[in-house]
Nucleic acid binder design. Structure first.
Lengths: 135, 135
DNA sequence: GCTGGCGTTGACGTCGGGGGGAAGGTTTAC
DNA sequence: GTAAACCTTCCCCCCGACGTCAACGCCAGC
């Protein structure tokens, strides 16, 4: 299989495949004419990369998974190095979520304070027309 | 007050102040010699900008707050435009947190599956030495 | 009158990751 | 024969919020 076909079957571009090879992530055999030659195995590796990318993994973080598959394991996450990447990613996500939640609560606090201040100001400047309007 | 003093009192740099002026966010009067001249008011504006920046607001998002203060309001979030920025930011934060939480749960699922697979493999390849070891 | 410190503008660098796009050449497919 | 696909190498880009010079002006103290 040549680069164009692999790219199409994996839903990516030839440019990305050359880039992965440049990183040493997905090296290709070469045919006599210099063309990159890929097998079905490479399609599996590539799909692993794409899946992890969708999870927000960086390309370097996919490397253990790819090497694990290349070592013959049926799953890319069968190796300790891959599990370690999972753990690091989970910790990273937890920290990021916690930080965002903290910011969110601070912003929400500011927002509510501002809204209350506005309402109080409004009630001073424009008192209700009658008592019935309160209900 | 000149640019160096303002920068120091607000805990930022002269470069940042020139950048804010370039954006039209914090314009400065000029002294006769061409030096930027700031007042105490500018320090308040600048502190508002820095606080919002710490919350993760972009500089453009701080503009309504700064203009609100400049319009004479005692608080930067007393204007509807500022409240709208708060709302947008809260929605943005919520969406971001939800997305991360979703990714986190997917990654956690993958991780747990991989760990279970590894444990099962280990129990097949290395069966317990005796029944007592099970408890 | 000289040094040092602050000020001015403008232009360019950076960081990070994941490629895009064009130039210029070979090979393959119809 | 020609168009499509492939090759390599090279620079470009995105995004914001500045950092980092460069080359010069202004002013205070000694």
């Amino acid at each position: 299989m040549r680069i164009g076909e692999l790219a199409e079957r994996a839903g990516t571009t030839t440019r990305a495949l050359r880039y992965y090879e440049q990183l040493g992530l997905l090296p290709a055999r070469r045919a006599g004419n210099g063309y990159r030659a890929y097998g079905e195995e490479d399609l599996r590796l590539l799909r692993e990369i794409r899946m992890l990318q969708d999870f927000g993994f960086g390309l370097e973080e996919t490397r253990p998974f790819v090497e694990c598959l290349r070592a013959g394991h049926p799953e890319g996450d069968a190796c300790p190095a891959s599990l370690e990447v999972y753990r690091r990613k989970l910790a990273e996500l937890d920290e990021c979520i916690a930080r965002l939640a903290d910011v969110r609560s601070q912003v929400a606090g500011q927002f509510e304070r501002a809204v209350r201040a506005r309402d109080e100001l409004a009630s001073v400047e424009q008192p209700p027309l009658c008592e019935l309007a309160k209900e």
